[in-house]
């Protein structure tokens, strides 16, 4: 007997995680404590997301993992292989074909459907943590709905920089009640948090799970005179020409040459397959190494 239990974790652990997920869905935006387990990968590599995925996967699933939008980075490849091996699930890089998507720091460009589940890897789940280091205090602040400190932080951004400078992990308010950290996604992705898919957030080291049921109201915090703005680099993708996707800036030589490219690799390559070419791009099929 050398096989793993289905999806690696033992059954009692999965039950504990599943109970936390259900309470998370019942109290959207509230961080449910859970007894996070040691996983065969270091903290910071997505142990929270992996535990949530292990608790929700079924054998018929098609699993996709992205890291900053990319399917082919070390972290994404190793987590995908982990569940290929321990749960025997099919894997894909195509957003549309996936039923469960585990993500680090991005929401796919393509709108997700009711039949999909998005699992986030979360480093620091507590949005107030950098303002108040004590868990006892932040817990009290959530219970009293005392979020003035967060608005002071955003106000200080404006007074220092002339605009809200927070560009990622931009705090949101869920259903008018809990202030939540959407994980370090760029604020460009914040409007997509209101979606048709189930979203579950797992923080392994910090031992918290939280969730957003489909169509949950998620509002990015802002001020009337400084409204929230989902910003991105002011360019089109140099590879596929997309003007509405979130871009990574790449330095391509040591003479200062640079290139903007979709952070969502599946989105970018699907567009290239459809024939779109960016300013520095090569038509699809002509770049075969």
């Amino acid at each position: 007997m050398t096989e793993y239990n289905f999806a690696y974790l033992d059954e009692q652990t999965k039950r504990m995680i599943r109970r936390a997920i259900l309470k998370g869905l019942a109290i959207p935006g509230y961080q449910v404590p859970f007894a996070s387990r040691e996983m065969p990968m270091p903290y910071g590599w997505g142990t929270g997301g992996v535990q949530v995925s292990a608790a929700v996967l079924i054998p018929d699933d098609t699993f996709k993992v992205i890291d900053q939008g990319a399917d082919d980075t070390t972290n994404a490849v190793s987590i995908r292989r982990f569940f290929e091996k321990t749960a025997g699930v099919a894997v894909t890089e195509a957003t549309r074909q996936a039923t469960v998507i585990q993500t680090r720091h991005r929401i796919p460009e393509e709108a997700l459907t009711e039949n999909q589940i998005l699992v986030y890897q979360v480093p620091i789940p507590e949005p107030l943590r950098f303002l108040e280091p004590s868990e006892v205090e932040t817990r009290k602040m959530h219970s009293l709905e005392e979020y003035g400190l967060m608005h002071v932080k955003l106000y200080e951004d404006i007074s220092k920089h002339g605009a809200i400078a927070t560009a990622y992990a931009y705090p949101v308010k869920v259903e008018g009640r809990y202030v939540m950290d959407p994980s370090p996604i760029p604020k460009f992705d914040n409007p997509k948090l209101e979606m048709a898919a189930i979203q579950i957030f797992g923080a392994g080291r910090e031992q918290r799970i939280y969730a957003l049921p489909p169509y949950t109201q998620v509002v990015s915090l802002d001020f009337d005179d400084y409204p929230f703005e989902a910003s991105k680099a002011d360019h089109a993708c140099d590879v596929c020409g997309a003007e509405d996707s979130y871009l990574d800036e790449l330095i391509v030589d040591d003479k200062g040459g640079r290139l903007f490219m979709c952070s969502d690799t599946d989105f970018c390559s699907s567009r290239r397959r459809e024939g779109h070419v960016g300013a520095q791009g090569i038509p699809y099929g002509e770049d075969a190494a």
Partner: peptide
């Protein structure tokens, strides 16, 4: 087959709670 059957059951349970 507890691991697989409970996983399938939980997916239904979670769907019910989320929707």
């Amino acid at each position: 087959n507890a691991p697989v059957q409970s996983a399938r059951a939980f997916r239904e349970i979670m769907t019910a709670m989320a929707r």
